[in-house]
Write a protein that binds this DNA or RNA. Sequence first.
RNA 1: CGGAGUGUAGCGCAGUUGGUAGCGCGCUUCGUUUGGGACGAAGAGGUCCCCGGUUCAAAUCCGGGCACUCCGACCA
Length: 398
Amino acid sequence: MKQSQLFPKTKKEAPKDAESINHKLLVRAGFMDQLMAGSWTLLPMGFKVVQKINQIIREEINAVGGQEMLMPLLHPKTIWNETGRWDKANEIMYKLKDSREKEYALSFTHEEIVMDLLRKTISSYKDLPVSIYHFSTKFRNELRAKSGILRGREFMMKDLYSAHASEEDLMEYYEKVKSAYSKIFTRLGFNFKIAKASGGVFTDKFTHEFQVLSDVGEDTIYWKEGDTEATNEEVMEGNKEEYISAKSIEVGNIFPLGTFYSERMRAYFTDRDGGKKPIWFGSYGIGPTRVMGTWVEVSHDDKGIIWSKQISPFDIHLVDLNGNGKEIYGKLIETGFDVLWDDREVSAGEKFGDSDLIGIPVRLVLSERNGDKVEYKERSKDESELLSLDEAIERLKK
RNA sequence: CGGAGUGUAGCGCAGUUGGUAGCGCGCUUCGUUUGGGACGAAGAGGUCCCCGGUUCAAAUCCGGGCACUCCGACCA
């Protein structure tokens, strides 16, 4: 991609009211734009990052048998009345009426919709288990949108739902998803903890949250040295002083919901013994847009963002000071790299400034000073070195 | 919803005692530059958040709205 054509241009200054790092940097670098409080456009580079995050999630969820689909966002009131959540989740739901006074909700989650689907399609234990998911928008009437893209009123979520013939099977799958989530956040490169927490409007039972350690986090978690799991402050029992604690950002959450939803919505199946039983149910969420914001919070410096190879919008930033990098650009593209080529007629300083701001992990500088070599520099390091193009390509392939 | 703050050019801001709006960046054109956001010259760009009031006169004073940000209560 030629940078001269990239939409939009970077900004020199952050929005004046922006406080959080993700808000300032993602807006300045041209990854997102605010429409109103808690509502964001993902601009081309922001969308690329989210797509990369989604792909990592997709691969790991598919690996535990998840089947991707897509559910609607406009839901009838009647279905939410079946579980009582039209009233119970009143504060978080956006509700609206059409011209005939029929009432709807904008989706804040999909348990009821999935359960409706299951009761229409599952009749025997032979039809179970089922694991289905989608990536879609969630609407939540947050009392206060804040922290850039970390808490929006409209955001992207991957939500997975699983249905089982027994509690044992549900819990076995729950553990599978827990380890799939661990793989996802490990691949994404986060320092995270799995924390025991409460279920909010989803369930009275325990749940597990995936928490990335960061000072801008809204949660506080506690653990003891050597513990694999932590505990969210909201369900913390015992003496806090005996634990290590840290602020954290919740990037994922898994819920073993049990049979509450299936009983309320009469989603039964016929078991091996001929008896009619409620479906065992679980749901599992990750917020990819929040993941993007969280990454920026934990990986930046005073000049800009520092993306990882896994989720960077481009593989290489080709900073062309001569204006004659067309051939090298072509060769890098041919080799299979996704390259942002700074072909603009602006000063070197501006190119370097934008390069640091955008934060692509590898920068290749073309300049007369370098002769026929390219200057290879990693965004996360200070030093650079001169390499032949072939050497640079070899290094990039690793 | 409680507390605090802000709203003036695309962005960041200044605007004194009420007298009809300016600075920096960005943008356009021309020229000079080209390794860390360069320089000169000439331009374009305004519903001073909205509505009402006071006044000869309102960005400025008064009343009422709206929006955004931060803190708190609630949550991927």
